[in-house]
Amino acid sequence: MDRSGPASAYWPITDDLSALRGLVRGYAVQAGLDGVRLQDLVLAVNEAAANVLDHAHGEGHVQAWHDDRYVTVEVHDCLGRLVPAHADRRNPGVSTLRGRGLWLMQQLCDEVRITRDAKGSAVRLRQAIEGMAPPA
């Protein structure tokens, strides 16, 4: 497969998550992801971006990059309320209606990490590209 496409990508977050999913899918396919792991990453990015719409006034952006081993997507907000401890969130159970996004991201991706700086918070979602050599 040709993996010589764009090394990185940047998309603003808008209300149109369907469009964002299409962009992420296209990028990740070109990077070598496919099947369930591709769909899982797309859903995880969707969840992180929906959180930005719900909890960070909808202001944020998505960055993606890849190498031979991983596709990495970072979902940034401009509010910074999300802190690393949120990544340890447990499954809220069926009696709770909302708040499953981060839990779901952790089930979907190889790595979920929350970072925070002066500009806001970011969720880093990383998926290994199958069929590639494992990390050294």
């Binding site: 998550l17 369907s18 999913r21 859903l43 969707n46 969840e47 929906a50 069926v94 209606l97 909302r98 499953r100 996004g101 779901l104």
Partner: peptide
Amino acid sequence: AFCDSTGISVFLG
């Protein structure tokens, strides 16, 4: 074709 956690919240509601 697609359902996210927002959709699941609506089903649970």
